[in-house]
Amino acid sequence: MAFNSDNVRVFLAVLDTGSFSAAARTLGRVPSAVSMTIAQLEAELDLLLFDRRTREPRPTDVARALEPQARQLASQLRQLQAHAQELHLGLEKRLTLAIAPELLSVPWSQPLAMLAQEFPSLDVEVLSAPQAAALRMLHAGEAQLALVFERPGTDERESFQELGHEVLVAVMSPEHPEARTRQDRLSLKDLLDIRQIAVASRDAHGADPRLMVARQIWRTDSHLATLSLVQAGLGWAYLPQRLVEPLVASGQLVEIRFGNMSNQLRLWVDVVWQNDQPLGLGAKRFIELMRQAA
Rank of each mutant, 00 (worst) to 15 (best):
R136T: 11
S121E: 12
R71A: 00
P130F: 04
L135M: 08
E158W: 13
R78D: 12
L191G: 06
R78L: 10
E150A: 12
A100S: 15
E142V: 10
D184P: 03
R136M: 08
D203I: 08
Q131S: 08
Q76N: 07
A198R: 01
I194R: 00
A82L: 10
A170V: 06
A134E: 03
A74R: 02
G141R: 00
E156P: 12
E158R: 11
D193K: 13
E118D: 08
A143I: 01
S187F: 06
S75M: 08
Q110P: 13
A133T: 13
A113T: 13
K189W: 15
D155A: 07
A133R: 13
V148Y: 02
E142H: 14
E92I: 08
H88P: 07
V171T: 08
L87Y: 10
R151I: 10
S105D: 14
A129V: 04
L168V: 05
R202G: 15
A179H: 01
T96F: 00
R180F: 03
V106K: 10
L80N: 09
T96I: 00
P130C: 06
A179R: 04
L95Q: 05
W108D: 02
Q131E: 11
A133H: 10
Q81H: 14
S159F: 13
K189C: 12
E162W: 10
L103E: 01
A70C: 10
L145E: 00
E86P: 07
M137I: 06
L66N: 01
L192E: 12
Q69N: 11
A170W: 02
A65I: 08
L147Y: 03
L87K: 13
L122E: 05
G164T: 01
A82R: 09
L77H: 12
